[in-house]
Simulated scan of single mutants.
Amino acid sequence: MHRNMDLYKYLITKAEKLTDDWYKSIDQSTAVGVYASKDAKDINRLKSQNYSFHEHLIQVFLEDEHEFFKAFEVWLNEIVTDTGHQSTPTHIILQEFLNVQRQYLSMIESFERENEGTYTKEQIYSWNHIILKAFSRVMTRFVEVHDQLSLRRLKSQQELINDLSAPVIKLHQDVGLLPVVGEIDTQRAKYLLENTLMECTKKCITHLYVDLSGVNVIDTMVAMQIFQLIDALKIVGVKTTLSGVRPEIALTAVHLGLNFKDIHIAGNLSQALQMK
């Protein structure tokens, strides 16, 4: 019931004006992110994206709902991956969606006045309803796609941080160094164990210096996992020399009853490297 060629034609002729009016309505004194740019290229791209939105949205008055929302995915992916929109808070983008929604409701009202008596209240209601439904679906989907992209980016960044925070550095021949720096939680300790074993095997390391001088705090679970790392390295044929063990870490290990037997220990890395 919401399909109507006359309304479609009316809105498509107003699309450019909708874009211009929308951009002019942005308060540049408080605008942030993509909406605050003064660069002509950024402004033109933003207007082009908005106009493209109108081209897609107006199709709702011609197409089947399923096909309409399917086609909208292309526009959504373009916006979500746009660097300007990525640097803009999500709630600001959603606010602009709502501003454009108000434009459409106003346009439908204008169309009704210009064609007074031509359409029934049920038809007008169906137009308003489909606009509200379309915006609701598009905004919800935007947040979903945006969050998926953010999670992938966060995961990639976390993997990079883990790689940088647990590097096995090959010193010479079959000797390597694992400098552990910063706070170690259970998740990072697990990664440390897995990554170190893999890197030692990959780099053919048979003697690994593990330096803990950069670790200030360590809890019971993490202390156990570090000693598990040493035991696991022993199983795969890697000799371990531990250095930089702070008093609090040593106390934690003792309280846990962890066995220091057969573990080479040095006060600091310099001393460890001098050990035969």
Rank of each mutant, 00 (worst) to 15 (best):
74 V>E: 11
151 L>I: 14
248 E>G: 05
209 Y>F: 15
152 R>I: 10
72 F>M: 06
107 M>H: 13
188 R>Y: 04
19 T>A: 06
241 T>H: 04
172 H>W: 15
157 Q>F: 10
203 K>E: 13
114 E>C: 11
31 A>W: 04
62 L>M: 14
275 M>H: 04
91 H>P: 01
250 A>R: 03
169 I>P: 06
178 L>A: 12
257 G>S: 08
117 G>R: 13
18 L>V: 01
81 T>M: 09
120 T>Q: 06
191 Y>D: 02
151 L>S: 13
211 D>P: 01
262 D>R: 08
2 H>M: 05
230 I>G: 02
26 I>H: 00
159 E>I: 06
238 V>T: 14
39 D>V: 04
104 Y>W: 15
207 H>N: 04
266 A>I: 06
28 Q>P: 00
84 G>K: 04
35 Y>P: 00
166 A>I: 09
265 I>Y: 02
19 T>F: 01
261 K>D: 08
149 L>C: 02
141 R>K: 12
99 N>H: 11
116 E>V: 10
15 A>Q: 08
36 A>L: 02
170 K>I: 07
33 G>R: 05
75 W>E: 01
111 F>E: 01
55 E>Q: 14
208 L>S: 05
234 K>E: 10
255 H>M: 13
147 D>S: 02
190 K>M: 12
262 D>P: 01
118 T>K: 14
191 Y>C: 02
86 Q>E: 13
26 I>L: 00
42 D>E: 06
6 D>C: 07
103 Q>Y: 15
146 H>S: 08
273 L>Y: 03
66 H>K: 15
87 S>D: 15
9 K>M: 15
86 Q>K: 15
142 F>I: 00
210 V>F: 08
223 A>S: 14
102 R>T: 07
69 F>T: 02
265 I>F: 02
48 S>Y: 05
228 Q>V: 03
204 C>H: 15
92 I>V: 15
117 G>Q: 12
201 T>L: 09
154 L>E: 07
178 L>D: 07
213 S>F: 07
99 N>P: 00
204 C>W: 15
121 K>V: 13
48 S>L: 03
190 K>N: 13
74 V>N: 08
127 W>K: 00
170 K>Q: 15
183 E>N: 04
166 A>M: 11
276 K>P: 00
48 S>A: 04
252 T>V: 09
5 M>I: 14
214 G>L: 14
42 D>P: 00
2 H>T: 02
271 Q>C: 08
164 L>Y: 09
208 L>V: 10
173 Q>F: 11
149 L>H: 12
268 N>L: 11
115 N>H: 14
162 N>S: 11
165 S>Y: 12
239 K>Q: 13
248 E>I: 08
254 V>D: 10
273 L>P: 00
249 I>S: 03
137 R>W: 15
218 I>V: 13
258 L>G: 03
263 I>Q: 02
158 Q>D: 13
217 V>W: 06
